[in-house]
Write a protein that binds this DNA or RNA. Structure first.
Lengths: 97, 97
DNA sequence: TATAAATATAGAAATATTTCTATATATTGG
DNA sequence: CCAATATATAGAAATATTTCTATATTTATA
């Protein structure tokens, strides 16, 4: 019987629960991008995007890498994979009986 | 090339992004329960749980069924399955090139 | 070193969410 | 029909989130 950390999973879901952040994840699924490139895909201010990127990094969805003036972001594929596994576990408790 | 409905996915994630609601989903994964049974698993008021159940029903995670005085809830397994598929799609756009 | 470019942080306003108390509705049994 | 039980709704207070403007920090280059 595994212990499910609902609080942790909920926090990560909360980070993803935004159309803009989902689209950022999708953009990064095609490869690394810097902040100013990502910004072009949205109609929000630069600080707003910076805030979203911080949330994605803090939630371990995205890894940041500084190169000169630019910050490059790439996906951390493990996180969504683990999250999906956790959701499966939550929905299929009976399997472990 | 599929169209991804980020807004819809974000709304569903927002419904799930709460420890209590995740635990409710987990409880229901073991079978149907009525509201008063679910309530015993938490330290919240009855209206709070009612509000959460409504969110889960509106988000199609849970199906409600009235039987006499009681409302029984059960999982709608398709929804989380579809949501997981959508997340996979978001994270693996390159696969469709 | 001064300036420009890229990004981050601070702080505030607007909006959304959570969760309560009070009350309403629906159903059953006497 | 009345009372009890189960659940839902209304409305408000507390809290959290979103997103802006203004400003600070970091880095490269003239």
């Amino acid at each position: 019987m595994k212990e499910i950390n609902y609080t942790k999973i909920a926090k990560q879901l909360k980070v993803m629960a935004d159309p803009k952040r989902l689209k950022i994840i999708n953009l990064l699924s095609n490869g690394e991008m810097c902040a100013s490139e990502i910004l072009k895909a949205f109609r929000v201010s630069q600080p707003t995007l910076s805030h979203d990127m911080k949330a994605l990094v803090d939630g371990k969805f995205v890894i940041a890498r500084r190169e000169g003036q630019k910050t490059f972001y790439r996906l951390n594929p493990d996180t969504i994979f683990d999250l999906q596994a956790a959701l499966s576990e939550i929905c299929n408790e009976n399997i472990n009986l």
